[in-house]
Simulated scan of single mutants.
Amino acid sequence: MGRIILLLLFVLAAYLVWKAFGPSTWKKREVEQPRAIKGPDDDEEFLWNLEKERFKQRRAQEAEEEKRRQRRNRGTDGEKD
């Protein structure tokens, strides 16, 4: 009885090893498909460009606010003199 169980375990182990490392898995390793871009949120370059544009807009807005503050400060300084 013990020999039959041992034989079944050996056959099961061989089967599992064949499924895990057999020829059907070799094809998957050789052909690596590039990642398909499905939309703009998957495209890294698009997201990077979008982030750069937002950064530029934020910098322009900050520069404009700084100019307004400087003008306001010059206007109040001129009234005191």
Rank of each mutant, 00 (worst) to 15 (best):
E79Q: 02
A63D: 05
G2Q: 09
L50A: 13
V11Q: 02
R59H: 14
A36G: 09
E45W: 14
E44I: 09
L47A: 14
N73P: 00
P34L: 14
G75V: 00
S24H: 15
F21M: 04
E30C: 13
V17H: 08
K19D: 01
K27M: 05
A20F: 00
A36W: 11
V11I: 15
F55G: 05
E64A: 06
I4L: 08
F46R: 07
L6H: 12
P34V: 07
G2C: 03
K27W: 08
W26N: 08
A14I: 08
L9S: 10
E65I: 04
T76K: 12
K38D: 08
E51S: 10
L12V: 03
Q61L: 11
K67F: 03
I4V: 09
D41S: 15
Q57W: 11
Q70K: 13
R68W: 05
R3W: 07
F10N: 06
D81N: 12
L8R: 01
Q57F: 10
Q61D: 11
N73G: 01
D77V: 00
L47V: 15
V31I: 12
R68I: 09
M1R: 08
D43V: 06
R54V: 13
V11M: 05
P40R: 09
D41V: 05
S24M: 15
F55E: 06
G39N: 11
R69A: 01
L16S: 04
G75D: 08
T25A: 15
E64P: 00
R58W: 15
R58T: 12
L9A: 10
R29C: 15
E64T: 02
I37T: 12
R69C: 00
K28P: 01
Y15A: 07
E64M: 01
L9T: 05
K80L: 15
F46S: 09
G39F: 02
N49M: 14
E62H: 04
N73L: 04
D43R: 08
G75M: 06
L8H: 02
E62N: 15
R74H: 10
R54I: 13
E62A: 14
R3G: 03
Q61I: 04
R74S: 13
K28R: 15
N49Q: 12
E53I: 15
A60I: 02
L12T: 06
K28E: 12
T76F: 06
W48R: 13
G22Y: 00
K27G: 03
K28N: 07
E66R: 10
D42C: 14
E30Y: 12
K67L: 09
F10H: 07
W48K: 15
K56G: 06
E45H: 11
R59W: 08
K56S: 10
Q33L: 15
E30T: 11
R3D: 14
Q61K: 10
K27E: 09
Q70Y: 03
W26F: 11
K38Q: 10
D77C: 01
E65M: 04
G39H: 08
L6A: 11
R29V: 09
G2L: 04
R72I: 03
R3I: 07
D42T: 12
D81G: 06
K28C: 07
L8V: 04
D81A: 05
E44S: 14
E65W: 02
F46T: 08
